[in-house]
Simulated assay, not measured.
Amino acid sequence: MRILFIGDVVGDRGVQMIQTYLPKLKRDLKPQATIVNGENSTPVGRGISRKIYKQLLESGADVVTMGNHTWDNKEIYEFIDDTTKLIRPANYPGKDVPGRSWTKLKVNQATLAVINLQGRVFLPPLDDPFAVADKLVTEIRKETPVIFVDFHGEVTSEKRAIALYLKGRVSAVVGTHTHVQTSDGQIIDHQTAFMTDAGMTGPAAGILGMQPASVIQRFLDQRPARYVVETSEPGIMSGCVIDVNDETGHATKIKPVLIDDAHPYDL
């Protein structure tokens, strides 16, 4: 099974990059499943709307994952319970949390499970992602060994730790949230694919997708600043493609996907 994963879609420019390049990537890379992180995809860079969710699916996403901005656009409450293709972090605390924390899809004769988790270091103190992952993975492996985890976290150590903790029990752990693609794609012990961060999809000219001025000003004076999504050219699209053995669930290959001015699309 080949899985294509695209990192955090940011603002209108990110959605445009998805609409332009995702169909081409699917045509040329021929993934059997495509997963897109959409937690920053509204024009203000926080949350997702019904319209954008549909646009991501229409462009080729099979599953949309979220993160710490899951609830920032209140419209999500109107449709998250009605779909199996939009998932939010599994370790949100409390009972009756809206939406789903994992989903599955049939890929030929195999089944792919997709889990969304959020880290706790320098992020809101959700429930323990390690304990939640333990429980979920144990249950899901009764049905399929092919499991992809989008781990939405701030620090590299936590992302690496969860990958090593789940080694051999999941097919892949790919980090999101920090919006900068890392060059450490690897297969841990010939079992689990790992990349610390898939990177972002959106405006390349800003700072993590935001207009530079307010971000720089906050560094200068350490006062609260209103971040505004960058809308100008150029754009960037980041992610990875992973090959998995359907029978064992072990990953066999991971390769970064990067499209920007320095890396034009040339497949």
Rank of each mutant, 00 (worst) to 15 (best):
Asn91Ser: 01
Ile242Thr: 11
Pro264His: 10
Tyr77Cys: 03
Pro145Ile: 05
Gln118Asn: 07
Gly67Gln: 11
Glu154Phe: 14
Pro256Gln: 09
Leu29Asn: 07
Phe148Leu: 14
Gly209Met: 02
Val170Cys: 09
Glu233Tyr: 11
Thr178Asp: 04
Asp72Ala: 08
Val241Asn: 08
Asp243Pro: 03
Gly67Asn: 07
Leu258Gln: 13
His263Asp: 11
Pro234Asn: 11
Pro31Gln: 07
Met66His: 09
Gly99Tyr: 01
Glu78Tyr: 03
Asp184Tyr: 09
Ile115Leu: 13
Thr248Trp: 05
Asn108Ile: 00
Pro125Lys: 08
Asp184Phe: 07
Arg120Met: 09
Asp134Met: 12
Val244Leu: 05
Val228Ala: 14
Val149Asp: 04
Lys51Glu: 02
Pro31Asn: 08
Leu208Gly: 07
Ala110Arg: 08
Lys54Asn: 15
Ile188Trp: 04
Leu117Lys: 09
Lys26Asp: 01
Lys106Gln: 05
Met17Asp: 08
Glu139Gln: 08
Ala198Val: 15
Lys253Asn: 12
Val257Gly: 10
Cys240Ser: 13
Ala61Tyr: 11
Lys106Leu: 05
Glu39His: 11
Val132Lys: 11
Gly45Glu: 12
Arg226Thr: 15
Asp28Gln: 08
Val64Lys: 05
Gly249Gln: 01
Val173Pro: 13
Gly14Asn: 14
Leu267Asn: 01
Ile48Gln: 04
Leu164Cys: 03
